[in-house]
Amino acid sequence: MNAQLQPTGSAYFIAKETEKPETHTLSILVDNEPGVLARVIGLFSGRGYNIESLTVSETEHEKHLSRITIVTRGTPHVLEQIKHQLERIVPVHGVVDLTVRSKELGQERPLERELALVKVAGKGDDRVEALRLADAFRASVIDANTEHFIFEITGKGSKVDQFIAIMKPLGLVEICRTGVAAMNRGPQGM
């Protein structure tokens, strides 16, 4: 009582966040139907969640199923909300937080791979150096003429990041990345 003597916050009380944000990878199995991706993305933007990477493709044609992989960042509490909110979407079959699952399986993190196409143009020493480094990164040349290469590189996101950083001074022209594809190790499915 005597509320007037105790100044405080607001009806929209904005609690200080005490939990630390974490980056998690989610796998979402959905019916492959029009608008399903918009529903998933709309949920993230509408509720203020982050998307750091998004990958989607049909995985089982006969069953009309697609698999969406999202890398997101949030506190454990927000990550739990994201999972439940995704599960409310009618064409969503299931959501697995691969990061949580991998911990449960006693593993450090899920398997995550990304593919990138990297176009590098240049002549002389830079060109030789680019080819040499690509070899060290096990990137393959998928197109080339005397003035450019297009490399295909696959690996963890950090490896792709590094490769791109190294190519920058050597005549990097453009990059296309697929975003993360991920699953958990071991015999079980999601």
Binding site: Q4, P7, T8, S10, A11
Partner: peptide, 11 residues
Amino acid sequence: NAIDARGRELV
């Protein structure tokens, strides 16, 4: 006086 200045910003 029921709500202070900080509260006003947040409502």
